[in-house]
């Protein structure tokens, strides 16, 4: 697997506060790497270090491009704190962003039209940013990040404020880009989206790496199974003495039984009591959300 970006032991301090501490990870061509962490974990500092917006105090960030001299032109970036010049026209600003990335103007112009059509913004080309809705402006920002055909795309909370339809459009485009060989580094707090999109996960907490593997492996290693039962009865007490049970949560008709690590789902199903009425039962691994919360809490 071709690695486009190596990050080795980067650290960054602001005053006496260490915000990134000896962090290392790689980004491969064609993969979607989820960068997770609670607020203040150091995600943005890592991303800004990659973008050369801030310099780490130590460590190494290495790009494996054919021409590393102008590496920024091969990265697309959609920051969390983002906006566009309110008084500028959509096409003008997109062409300007492409120009800053050294992308040929005629090709940029062609791709602007293609992407505006793709995101239902055909008539927005001559509109000023301030005339667009928030969702439309966010689409324009996204186009600005991918217009120059980057080898690496860094997306920091790309879905915030988007309606579900637009979220699907963005998700599909991100998958397409990855399929075409773009390495996507994707930071978000929306765990369901990360789970749906990402191949691998890098999780940072208090500046340190706490998880780094494929999504499947992380779920295998860190997530046990949970059984959700929909029942009109109060079935909680029936499972309290189960040795396979880690904890039980009840919310309305839904009872969620978290199984201990190593407990096989089949083994648990066989032990379900006969004398309870079950409307619906599902067994699945802990979600990324559960793993995230547990990891953060334990750390």
């Amino acid at each position: 697997m071709e690695t486009l970006l190596n990050i080795r032991n980067i650290s960054k301090q602001f005053g006496k506060n260490t915000v990134v501490d000896q962090v290392s990870f790689d980004v491969h061509k064609g993969e979607i790497l989820g960068v997770l962490g609670p607020n203040g974990a150091g995600k943005t500092t890592v991303i800004r270090s990659i973008m050369d917006i801030i310099r780490p105090d130590s460590g190494e960030i290495r790009f494996n491009f054919q021409d590393n001299n102008n590496f920024l032109s091969q990265i697309g970036y959609l920051p969390e704190e983002r906006g566009l010049y309110r008084d500028s026209r959509v096409t003008d600003i997109l062409l300007y962003l492409a120009q800053l990335k050294e992308y040929p103007r005629d090709r940029a112009r062609k791709r602007v039209l293609e992407y505006l059509a793709k995101f239902d913004l055909e008539n927005a080309g001559k509109m000023k940013i301030k005339e667009l809705s928030r969702g439309m402006a966010q689409k324009v920002q996204f186009i600005g990040a991918i217009l120059h055909e980057p080898a690496i795309l860094i997306l920091d909370e790309p879905f915030s404020g988007l309606d579900p339809v637009s979220q699907d459009v963005f998700s599909e485009e991100i998958r397409n880009l990855a399929r075409n060989g773009v390495a996507v580094l994707f930071s978000s707090h929306q765990m369901n989206l990360v789970e749906n999109l990402c191949d691998r996960i890098f999780m940072i907490h208090k500046g340190k790496k706490v998880l780094y593997d494929t999504l499947l492996r992380i779920k295998q290693d860190f997530g046990s199974f949970k059984c959700e039962i929909m029942s009109e009865e109060n079935i909680r007490d029936k499972f309290i003495n189960f040795k396979e049970t880690e904890k039980i949560e009840q919310e309305g008709l839904r009872t969620t039984i978290y199984l201990k690590k190593g407990v096989e789902p089949g083994q648990f199903i066989q032990k379900l009591p006969d004398n309870i009425s079950i409307e619906e039962v599902t067994i699945k691994r802990d979600s990324l959300h559960d793993i995230f919360v547990r990891t953060v809490t334990e750390n």
Binding site: I75, L78, E81, L97
Partner: peptide, 17 residues
């Protein structure tokens, strides 16, 4: 000030120093 207000700055700094 307008680059800051319009939150353009990080987008710009991702392309130019």
């Amino acid at each position: 000030i307008s680059d800051k207000r319009d939150k353009m700055i990080e987008i710009l700094l991702s392309s130019v120093s």
